[in-house]
């Protein structure tokens, strides 16, 4: 099997995953986003979470309108449909390509895991490192939450945390591989898992906390965050299922002809 055969299947699986994430995001995520934008539209002028003058959200239609103000000339309907689909499919295909090539690199090299097993593991660990742990430290924020003044530092913190989490995950998998001959597979996996949790916990404690929720209603916040987590879980789960299925088929076909 070639790198190209992995990549093609990864991109296809990513496309499927992105489309599935769109369906989930549209169904469960758009209602709370609409609620948040409605709150933002009514509450923004009078009740911004921070009353200081510099803390505006630019909701007047300059930097961050939500379509209806004709900021980018993009309507809410377009943002909810084609816009959301573009985002989930683009991210799905990008992650699919990366995951497939990582799966190609570790195939046959992770203990005695089968191709399907190692590919499923790569996808699961990718979800934990890229989406789940960053979500626990910096949970998704709905429209109307977050100050325009801190977007720079929040973006930097978020991606720094993602980087630490992903690099730590790659490192502990390599660690598990190095320890396995001496400790045995089970102990090596426990040691690696502990090391990952330790590194990410230290990073989470050391890095700045973001709390700009203000008076945003808790029920809408909860609904939004749950839907964001569901959307990301749907993307990774569909990516894992589609990619392992496509690679498993390829493997059995090449075995049959070999």
């Amino acid at each position: 099997m070639t790198a190209r055969s992995f990549l093609v299947r990864g991109l296809l699986a990513g496309l499927i995953a992105g489309a599935f994430a769109f369906v989930v995001g549209y169904t469960v995520g758009e209602p709370p986003i609409d609620d948040a934008i409605a709150l933002e539209a009514t509450a923004a002028p009078a009740a911004a979470p921070d009353p200081t003058a510099g803390h505006t959200h630019d909701h007047a239609g300059t930097a961050h309108s939500h379509g209806d103000d004709a900021g980018g000339g993009i309507s809410r309907t377009t943002q909810k449909t084609w816009g959301l689909a573009t985002a989930t499919i683009a991210v799905g295909v990008a992650l699919g390509g990366i995951v497939a090539l990582v799966a190609a690199g570790v195939a046959g090299r992770l203990g005695r895991l089968s191709l399907v097993g190692s590919t499923a593991l790569v996808t699961a660990l990718g979800f934990v490192a890229y989406s789940l742990l960053p979500f626990l430290k910096y949970p998704a924020a709905p429209p109307a939450v977050g100050s325009a003044n801190t977007i720079g530092s929040r973006t930097a913190s978020y991606f720094a945390f993602v980087l630490i989490s992903v690099v730590a995950m790659v490192a502990v998998v390599a660690l598990a591989g190095a320890l396995a001959p001496r400790l045995g597979g089970h102990q090596a996996v426990v040691a690696a898992g502990t090391a990952y949790v330790a590194v990410v916990a230290v990073a989470a404690l050391a890095m700045p906390t973001v709390n700009e929720i203000g008076a945003f209603p808790a029920d809408v916040l909860w609904e939004f965050r749950l839907s964001a987590l569901l959307t990301q879980t749907a993307l990774w789960a569909a990516l894992g299922v589609a990619l392992t299925w496509l690679l498993g088929r390829l493997e059995s076909r090449s075995r049959a002809t070999a």
């Binding site: 995520g29 377009t78 959301l84 989406s131 998704a140 709905p142 325009a148 939004f224 964001a228």
Partner: peptide, 18 residues
């Protein structure tokens, strides 16, 4: 334009949007 186009996806995929 790009920000507005992918706006809802950016929120739901957990990235800091604004």
């Amino acid at each position: 334009a790009i920000h507005e186009w992918v706006h809802d996806g950016r929120h739901l995929l957990g990235y800091p949007c604004h």
